[in-house]
């Protein structure tokens, strides 16, 4: 009786100097400060690249090839071409293998020891430094075919994309409710018909998102193409010859002593950042359409 009396008579007004209120406010402030500090690098990189690169962002950047030293103007056309070729080859290789592996993991051996082992191997592969993928392809393809090529660069990038695709696609497939599989099986669908007709379409947005993010990652990688695609000063005619990529060009031009090449390195960085940004936004768009 007296306890509840005391409770009722106590003021409900907030006391700004109470220790718990003070502590709470300080911690909130700290969290905000940390969030701001975490965003600073991102904003700084974006602004820096934008400010330095935007001056060369015009049509010539896409239509002209890279300039030799001491030559003015020029563009990044051939490097863009090489990036599209290598990333395209990597995508064509990594997507079918990655998605099929994910189907196997999620639909055929889910929750088995085999699945755990493959999952573990995939995680290890995703942790392999990208330069290692480059050296591996250098000895496996470049040395055996006796030539650097856009193709070998693409294969090296595919090795980096594969674990990302396997993991995201497995997650997307495992999110498909088992009720849908039962509905399909209950209608007399075979395992293949269930996977191809129901499970894969239902998981498609998630799979596409994973693929886009891995494409964005591959486009920015330098180390795997460093001694596989190697670099090439002009347009290429086939995927079996050396090629330049945006990342390689930035790497070489940024350290060159010529102002024109340095400007183009900034423009190339800007293109890479925009590429990552656009694919991320597209991926988000795909996710949102699903809901």
């Amino acid at each position: 009786m007296s306890d509840s009396q005391a409770l009722i008579s106590r003021s409900l007004r907030r006391n700004p100097w109470a220790p718990r209120t003070l502590f709470s406010n300080v911690m909130t402030g700290l969290a905000i400060a940390c969030a701001v500090i975490a965003i600073i690098p991102l904003v700084a990189v974006l602004l820096y690249v934008l400010i330095n690169g935007v001056s060369r962002l015009d049509l010539n950047l896409f239509t002209q090839v890279q300039p030799p030293p001491r030559v003015e103007n020029g563009g990044l056309g051939n490097a863009l071409q090489g990036t599209f070729y290598t990333v395209g080859i990597a995508t064509l290789l990594a997507v079918p293998f990655g998605v099929m592996a994910a189907v196997f993991l999620s639909e055929f051996v889910r929750d088995t020891r085999l699945a755990r082992w493959i999952g573990f191997a995939t995680n290890v592969l995703s942790g392999v430094p990208s330069i290692v993928a480059g050296t591996f392809i250098y000895s496996a393809i470049v040395l055996t075919t006796k030539t650097f090529s856009a193709f070998s660069g693409g294969v090296a990038l595919a090795i980096l994309m594969l674990p990302v695709i396997v993991r995201t696609a497995t997650e997307a497939l495992e999110l498909v409710p088992s009720e849908l599989r039962q509905a399909s099986v209950g209608l007399g669908a075979t395992r293949f018909q269930t996977v191809a007709g129901v499970v894969l379409p239902a998981a498609l947005p998630g799979i596409v998102t994973g693929v886009m993010l891995s494409v964005a990652r591959a486009a920015g990688e330098t180390a795997p193409v460093l001694f596989t695609a190697l670099g090439w000063p002009t347009w290429i005619q086939s995927i079996w010859q050396q090629a330049n990529t945006l990342s390689l060009l930035v790497y070489k031009f940024a350290t060159a002593p010529y102002p024109n090449q340095q400007q183009l390195a900034w423009a190339g960085s800007l293109l890479l950042v925009l590429l990552v940004l656009v694919t991320n936004i597209l991926a988000r768009f795909v996710i949102r359409r699903r809901h």
Binding site: P177, E179, Q182, A183, S184, A202
Partner: peptide, 9 residues
């Protein structure tokens, strides 16, 4: 089934 499970089609 117990829970309606139309395909997302």
């Amino acid at each position: 089934f117990q829970k309606p499970n139309p395909f997302p089609k």
